[in-house]
C-alpha cells in the first residue's frame, strides 16, 4: 500500500501489515469519493448547482460520508481574541480603501462602464443584425446578496422555558469556582434574548464544566440566534448527557437544528425515534417525519 507523503511510523506499519488486503479493499471502494470538504458543503446546501451532482449528494448522504462529516463537525476551533481583532482590522482596511476611492471614482467608474456597455451593444447589434434583446447573457457574475425571502422549515422553533437538570441542582464545585453564578448569568442572557452573549458565556464555561446544561443552552442559544449549523454539535453533546426528563427536548431541538442546517436525513431519523416513543413531542415528530420524508424523495 502506498504510504502518504509523510510515511508510516512503526506503530502504523505494524497495524497496516496486520490488516493486509482488507484495507486495500476499503481504499479501493472510496478511491474516487469526493473530498470531505465538498461533502460537508453539499450537506449544508452550499454548493453551486453544477457541483451538486448526484454522485456528490449520494456520497454526502452515505454512511461513510456522514461519518466523515460527523467527525469534522465535532471539532470547534473558534477565532481567538487576536484572530477577531485581526479580521476586524482587515474589514476596516477594506472599508477605508473603498471610502478613499469615494464618489469621484465611482462616478468615473460608472461612466466608463456605461460607455463600454454602449460600445459592446453597438458592436454586437452591427455584427448580428439583431435587436439588443437578442444579446448573449452577461458573463459578469451575478452579485451575491442575501435572499430576502426567509427559508421555510417543517419544524417550528419555539423558545423553551429555562429549566435545570439534576446535574446543576446538585452541583458541588471547588470554593473558588462560581460555576452556578456564571451559569445563572448566561441563562439570564438567554432569557433576555441575548443569545450571542449567552453563547459566549457558555462557551467559556464549557471548557471547565462539560455538563449537560451548558451544552444544551449553548445549542439553544445558537439555534435561536440563527446559527443552526453551530447548534448541532453542542446539542448532540447534550443528547449524549441528557437524562430521561430532558431527552425528548434535546432530540427535538437537535432535529430542528439539523433541518435548518440542511441535514435532513439525520433530522428525519431523529424524528422517527421521537415518533416511536411516548413523549410530549411524539405527535409533532410523527407529522414532521412524514413531511421531511416526502421532501427527501427525489423528484420523479
Amino acid at each position: 500500500m502506498k504510504p502518504p507523503a509523510d510515511g508510516w511510523n512503526r506503530d502504523e506499519r505494524a497495524v497496516l501489515d496486520m490488516l493486509g488486503d482488507e484495507l486495500e479493499a476499503v481504499r479501493a471502494r472510496h478511491h474516487d469519493d469526493p473530498p470531505a470538504a465538498l461533502l460537508r458543503a453539499a450537506q449544508a446546501d452550499a454548493l453551486p448547482e453544477e457541483l451538486n451532482t448526484e454522485k456528490v449528494r449520494a456520497a454526502s448522504q452515505s454512511e461513510w460520508g456522514r461519518a466523515l462529516i460527523d467527525g469534522l463537525d465535532t471539532v470547534e476551533r473558534p477565532l481567538s481574541g487576536d484572530d477577531e481583532q485581526r479580521l476586524l482590522a482587515r474589514v476596516r482596511k477594506a472599508i477605508r480603501s473603498g471610502d478613499r476611492s469615494g464618489v469621484p471614482w465611482n462616478w468615473v467608474r460608472w461612466v466608463t462602464i456605461t460607455a463600454a456597455a454602449a460600445i459592446a451593444i453597438v458592436v454586437v447589434v452591427k455584427r448580428t443584425g439583431n435587436s439588443p434583446a437578442a444579446l448573449p447573457a452577461s458573463t459578469e457574475p451575478v452579485p451575491t446578496v442575501a435572499q430576502s425571502e426567509p427559508p421555510r422549515f417543517v419544524l417550528a422553533l419555539e423558545k423553551p422555558e429555562v429549566k435545570l437538570s439534576a446535574a446543576v441542582l446538585t452541583f458541588r464545585g471547588a470554593g473558588d469556582d462560581d460555576f452556578v453564578g456564571q451559569l445563572t448569568k448566561a441563562l439570564d442572557a438567554f432569557r433576555a434574548n441575548d443569545y450571542a452573549g449567552a453563547d459566549r458565556q457558555l462557551t467559556v464555561l464549557e471548557k471547565r464544566h462539560p455538563i449537560f446544561d451548558v451544552y444544551y443552552y449553548q445549542g439553544l442559544s445558537r439555534l435561536l440566534a440563527g446559527d443552526a449549523a453551530g447548534a448541532v454539535v453542542p446539542l448532540q453533546k447534550a443528547a449524549s448527557l441528557a437524562d430521561r426528563l430532558f431527552a425528548p427536548d434535546v432530540q427535538w431541538f437537535t432535529a430542528v437544528a439539523e433541518e435548518r442546517s440542511g441535514q435532513l436525513t439525520r433530522a428525519r431519523d431523529r424524528l422517527a425515534d421521537l415518533c416511536r416513543t411516548s413523549n410530549p413531542y411524539s405527535q409533532r415528530a410523527c407529522e414532521a417525519q412524514k413531511q421531511l420524508e416526502s421532501s427527501l424523495k427525489p423528484p420523479s
Binding site: 470531505a36 470538504a37 458543503a41 452550499a46 473558534p78 477577531e84 479580521l87 476586524l88 449549523a229 453551530g230
Partner: peptide
C-alpha cells in the same frame, strides 16, 4: 463573528 466564522468553516476546506 464567531457564529459567522463557525458556519464559514463548515462550508469550505
Amino acid at each position: 463573528v464567531q457564529a459567522v466564522f463557525r458556519f464559514a468553516r463548515s462550508l469550505v476546506g
